[in-house]
Amino acid sequence: MAERRVRVETKVGLHARPAALFVQAATRTPLDVTVAKQGKDPVNAKSILSVLALDAQNGEEIVIRAEGDGADAVLEELAGLVTESSA
């Protein structure tokens, strides 16, 4: 199980367009991907409703996990979507 901790840097947090892009990217991979906030249960990263309900805001840390071949690349892409470096 690969995991990545990142601080959400998009202004609107993991909502609106960043959330849609994040879920679309997660949905493109065949791997199981989850996203969680500190101390909370992880949710399916392919579920836009679950990701929105997570309510990860700008400045909050999230943990993205994926399992299987290519998990690192998937995490790299997803992390990039919520951090400033790629924005």
Partner: peptide
């Protein structure tokens, strides 16, 4: 995307 949400 919401209508086709796997969680839903």
């Amino acid at each position: 995307m919401m209508a086709r949400d796997p969680g839903l």
